[in-house]
């Protein structure tokens, strides 16, 4: 009986985790472009440039 309660809880926790992950993926926009995701995998990311998300001034200051 205790075993069954444990298994029940475990299945709920695992299922709930899956649900939470899916909702997170949905919120972060991972289902917005399924075609793009399918073809993106085929292309290499060239080594990242000196952090592209900084402005030239910031880069100079850092260097």
């Amino acid at each position: 009986m205790e075993m069954m309660l444990f298994l029940l809880l475990l299945s709920l926790v695992l299922g709930g985790g899956g649900l939470a992950l899916f909702l997170w993926a949905l919120r972060s926009g991972q289902y917005d472009d399924l075609d793009g995701a399918a073809s993106r995998i085929l292309f290499d990311d060239p080594p990242r440039q000196p952090a592209a998300d900084t402005t030239p001034e910031e880069r100079r200051r850092r260097a």
């Binding site: 472009d33 592209a52 998300d53």
Partner: peptide, 10 residues
Amino acid sequence: GVTQGRVNMT
């Protein structure tokens, strides 16, 4: 200057 440039293929 660009912080994000992302194309949605769909």
